[in-house]
Amino acid sequence: MVTKNPIQVADRLFLVLETLADTGAVSLGFLCEKLKLNKSTTHRLLSSLSYMGYVKQDPKTQKYDLSLKILSLSNKMLSRMDILEDLKPYLKRLSGETGETVHLVALDGLDAVYIFKEESCQNSVRMVSKVGNRVPLYCSGVGKAICADLPDSKIEEVWKASNIQKLTPNTITDYTLFMKRIEEIRKSGYALDDEENEIGVRCIAVSIPDYHGRSRYAFSISAPAARMSDERISEIAHIILKVKDEIASSL
């Protein structure tokens, strides 16, 4: 495993992109402070990214921001995920049937990345998650659902490589307890995020294999904890497991 980028300038270029993705349009001075780099270095990095079309500068405010080329790249990648188009009808129907927000994620290293979101149109409370956001496997419903399909040895590798943090008072940071939850998921068929990643939000999730039978995807139903009582989760569990079976049959 590579622990340090062998090309430092590449490391800095992508750091600029990731920072602008978080901050939005900012001045050169602000970006220097954020990156902890001097102005000349930061300006060269921005100039290079501007030349390649990934960064733009507003002629009026002189602020820098990402261009739409980034969006174009992500859309091209998503368009190659045939499974996404196959699953959309099921996920849209699931959201309509439950009245809650549905997410689809793909496994990427130690994280699950949101690749689709169907927002509930029946409730005024909106989930802050966005397509492209990442959540760690160890503290998310979708992540634990994917982990439950993996061999114990692989789960241990994921755990040891993860930056285990107590994101909320409910986050599981003990490996023995985590594996106990994995066993529960394997028996019930679904995983829970019991306000482990974000206080006030509960999720129920199930994994789905790719076309080759590998555990690489999962989808979830998320809602404010006030709407996700244990009784409500029990009701939704039957629905989400039924949809999982339908998807598995179609794939």
Rank of each mutant, 00 (worst) to 15 (best):
V2G: 01
T3C: 00
T3V: 05
F14E: 05
E18Q: 08
T19M: 13
T19N: 10
A25V: 00
V26E: 06
S27K: 00
L28N: 06
F30T: 15
F30Y: 15
L31I: 01
E33M: 10
L35H: 07
S40L: 08
S47I: 00
L49T: 05
Y51W: 01
Y51I: 08
V55T: 06
Q57A: 11
D58Y: 11
P59A: 10
P59K: 03
K60P: 00
K63C: 09
K63E: 15
Y64E: 04
D65S: 06
D65L: 01
L66C: 02
K69M: 06
N75G: 01
M81N: 14
M81V: 08
D82I: 07
I83S: 10
D86A: 12
P89D: 10
K92L: 10
G96R: 04
T98S: 12
G99P: 11
G99M: 09
H103Y: 14
H103P: 01
V105E: 11
V105R: 05
V105W: 13
L107H: 05
D108Q: 10
D108L: 04
G109Q: 09
A112K: 05
V113Q: 15
I115D: 09
K117M: 14
E118R: 07
S124I: 13
V128R: 09
S129R: 00
K130Y: 10
V131Y: 08
V131D: 13
V131T: 15
R134Q: 13
Y138N: 03
Y138T: 06
V142T: 15
C147W: 01
D149K: 09
P151Q: 01
S153I: 07
V158W: 02
W159H: 04
A161M: 12
A161Q: 14
L167N: 11
P169Q: 12
I172S: 03
I172C: 14
D174V: 07
D174P: 05
F178P: 03
M179V: 04
M179W: 02
K180D: 12
R181C: 13
I182T: 11
I185L: 07
I185H: 11
G189Y: 09
L192M: 09
N197D: 15
I199P: 01
V201N: 05
V201D: 05
I208P: 02
Y211I: 02
Y211C: 04
G213N: 04
S215H: 11
Y217T: 05
S220H: 05
S220T: 15
A225S: 15
A225I: 00
S229N: 13
K242C: 10
D245L: 03
E246D: 15
I247H: 05
S249K: 12
S250M: 06
